[in-house]
Design a protein around this nucleic acid. Structure first.
Lengths: 132, 132
DNA sequence: TTTTAGTTTATAATGATTCTAAAAAGGTGT
DNA sequence: ACACCTTTTTAGAATCATTATAAACTAAAA
């Protein structure tokens, strides 16, 4: 069990459900974007068991807090998550309603010149909206 | 009525409600960020009349489509709008849950090197998350 | 003023997310 | 294996933002 230790080390009990979710999210060489509903469907297909929505919400938020997932800032009715937690950006295709990764090197260095007193920068995210 | 013509020229009938909303949104030299609920409260205070939520949603979306408002890409349970429709960016203070404008010149030029076939760039928006 | 199409409204419906409280399961010590 | 305690899961209810509905209203045109 390759995720068992990862979970334990994070202080998260390696439950059946969490291990299954890890398989679906991380046992692939491609990263991807998903909503909670997408994840629910994916799990229904890939494994034959069902995991309750409440658990999916709990787990995704727990993984996000641990840095295993990132939420993507976008205006959509639902929350989008990314299994790619490296520093990068996104295209958003308005017509297809689809997100596309943008490597940091495809954007170039971004230098924030303004400083806010007593606050430090946690992240800098670029969203590039696309139209036809 | 300074907004009457603006609305007419946009193909929007200058109704009592829309004119009131214009007053609250645009009759100030400061731009600001708001949610539909914020706007509802502001209207209740500034004018003594109430406008139904449905109308606020309709009107804000109509104004957005006409380019009089912009929606800000952020992960929050509710939609945030900006009366500043010029090209600019945002800080998001995670603790205070508050948005702060970032002038384009405070970020410097952003050059998107990757191109997507058949799509053109509609907007480039930067969100800088702040923590203590 | 009559007509027409666009607008407002209360309310219902929807959809995503969070809450709740009870049952189940993981981990530890015996 | 067993008992104990704590965390986790779960179905279902509750909440919150947003959209849909359909009837009443109103601006503008004929």
């Amino acid at each position: 069990m390759k995720y068992l230790e990862k979970l334990r080390n994070s202080g998260l009990r390696p439950t059946k459900q969490r291990l299954q979710i890890c398989e679906v999210l991380f046992n692939t060489n491609k990263t991807f974007h998903f909503t909670i509903n997408d994840l629910s469907e994916k799990i229904k297909k890939q494994t034959s068991k069902k995991i309750s929505l409440a658990t999916l919400y709990n787990t995704v938020h727990a993984f996000e807090k641990k840095g295993y997932l990132k939420q993507i800032p976008i205006n959509s009715g639902q929350a989008y998550f990314d299994t790619n937690v490296t520093d990068h950006h996104h295209f958003y295709d308005l017509k297809e309603e689809k997100l596309i990764d943008l490597k940091n090197s495809d954007v170039g260095p971004i230098n924030i010149l303004k400083k806010i007193n007593g606050k430090k920068i946690k992240s800098v995210e670029v969203l590039v909206k696309l139209e036809d």
